[in-house]
């Protein structure tokens, strides 16, 4: 049987930052073939580190990441991969307008789409200012638009809605739903999940991945203390062991604000 490489293959990934005693990611495995996945986790759960590791920007201590069948460390000129991590847009301290032109050239495209989005999101006033001089929400939006530009086949988005106002959030959701490639999106906001009903769902807790499930199943998922026979996923945390069950259990995930608060309530 012929091996078909996934767009993103993460296998047994562990990350420990220098000087840190606790790992940021522990034995994480995720595969995306043509799916879109939203990963929910509280602050410090390892969401950003997962994206950074997928791009070869985090110190991986174990495991591997493959993009389009290639080891991430060996990737060169892999244009279909894109991200909104702001650190990758700090190549030079230039105004946002120049940054858009620079990124378009580096991705082998033009600025037509990004310019249209800049107008739609009313970001024209920031074009003459560098990314570090504009507001956090505006910088996040610019990074999102740069990531979405040039139709990436793998889009890695870190908290794309953070500090973004409500009307622009709606427009961004619409853009994200139109994106054609695989998407791995991180958020700590449970309430955002209702916008992505047909996406896969994963949880990150203390650097450990739990999933994949389906966002449309969220109303049927429950969190339980300890190991239970009918569990469809288990995780060991500093608060104890927790299991996910479908259709019945101790605490419904529906209506939860954060996974952490659910665990704390149960423990």
């Amino acid at each position: 049987m012929r091996y078909l490489p996934g767009v993103l293959e993460v296998q047994g990934l562990s990350v420990v930052y220098p000087g840190s005693r606790s790992p940021a990611l522990v034995d994480v495995s995720v595969t995306l073939q043509d799916q879109r996945m939203v990963v929910v986790g509280s602050n410090g759960s390892g969401k950003t580190t997962l994206l950074r590791a997928c791009l070869g920007l985090a110190p991986v201590t174990r495991g591997r990441v493959r993009l389009f069948g290639r080891e991430v460390q060996d990737a060169r000129g892999l244009l279909p991969v894109s991200t909104n991590l702001s650190e990758v847009y700090r190549l030079l301290s230039v105004p946002v307008g120049d940054l858009i032109r620079l990124q378009a050239r580096l991705k082998g495209g033009n600025t037509t789409q990004a310019s249209r989005w800049i107008r739609e999101f009313e970001l024209d006033p920031v074009l003459r200012r560098p990314l570090h001089e504009i507001s956090t929400g505006q910088a996040k939006l610019v990074s999102n638009l740069l990531a979405l530009d040039h139709d990436p086949r793998l889009l890695l988005l870190d908290e794309p809605f953070e500090n973004v106002d409500l009307s622009r959030r709606r427009r961004l959701v619409s853009l994200l739903r139109q994106a054609r490639g695989c998407v791995l999106l991180n958020t700590h906001e449970f309430e955002l999940l209702r916008h992505f009903e047909d996406w896969q769902l994963g949880f990150l807790l203390e650097g450990k991945f739990l999933g994949p499930y389906s966002v449309s199943d969220l109303d049927r998922l429950f969190l339980n203390r300890g190991e239970v026979p009918e569990s469809i996923g288990q995780i060991r945390t500093t608060l104890g062991t927790f299991s996910i069950t479908r259709d019945r259990g101790e605490a419904p995930l529906k209506g939860a604000t954060t996974f952490q608060s659910l665990m704390e309530r149960l423990s």
Partner: peptide
Amino acid sequence: AYATAALAYGFRFTLLK
């Protein structure tokens, strides 16, 4: 110093060499 991630990303995922 500011661009270490941008450079590593650029060499892998853009036309920058």
